[in-house]
Design a protein around this nucleic acid. Structure first.
Length: 154
DNA sequence: GCCAACGTTGGC
DNA sequence: GCCAACGTTGGC
């Protein structure tokens, strides 16, 4: 089983939206970055778990835990001209973008803020991709050690 | 709103 | 293959 972190802007899609989704499950689509795509397509498997992270908001941080319920599959939003993430260069025969399905497991007991995480950047969370300067990945892997340490901050 | 950092594009 | 220009991300 692997551990991940998924970023989302709550003004676009928040943990409240996920709570209200049928089965508390949604397609994690619209990712348009090759490095992140590779992780969705090649790295994630059903049974993996991920932190849900709110970015570009008042208090950026981890707000919940989701389970990956399906491995990567071609992201159909890339082929929909009306979708904001439409990719005009896309060809359904050779899908370029991928999505996974995620189900909300639970909210964290409190928001584990970016500030909280930074406090441990030099020791327990050394190497955490999220804390790398200029990091822009919306999908990133976590070590088991980082996962458990972050949970201990709850 | 600002700006640093990054990814992508396209000319050469 | 290089790299400048551009667009985007995301914290502040």
């Amino acid at each position: 089983m692997k551990y991940w972190l998924l970023k989302t802007e709550p003004s676009t899609f928040s943990i409240e939206d996920l709570e209200q989704a049928p089965q508390r499950t949604t397609s994690w689509d619209g990712v348009r970055n090759f490095q992140a795509r590779n992780m969705l397509r090649d790295g994630m498997r059903a049974g993996d778990r991920a932190f849900l992270y709110h970015s570009s908001c008042k208090v950026p941080g981890i707000v919940g835990i989701v389970g990956i319920v399906s491995a990567g599959y071609p992201d159909r939003s890339a082929f929909d001209p009306k979708d904001p993430h439409f990719d005009p260069a896309g060809d359904p025969r050779t899908p370029r973008w991928y999505a996974v399905d995620v189900r909300l497991e639970r909210r964290t007991k409190r928001v584990i803020t970016l500030e909280d995480l930074r406090r441990h950047a030099r020791l327990a969370l050394d190497g955490l991709v999220l804390l790398r300067t200029g990091n822009r990945l919306s999908v990133m892997p976590l070590t088991a050690a980082h996962w458990h340490f972050i949970l201990s901050l709850e």
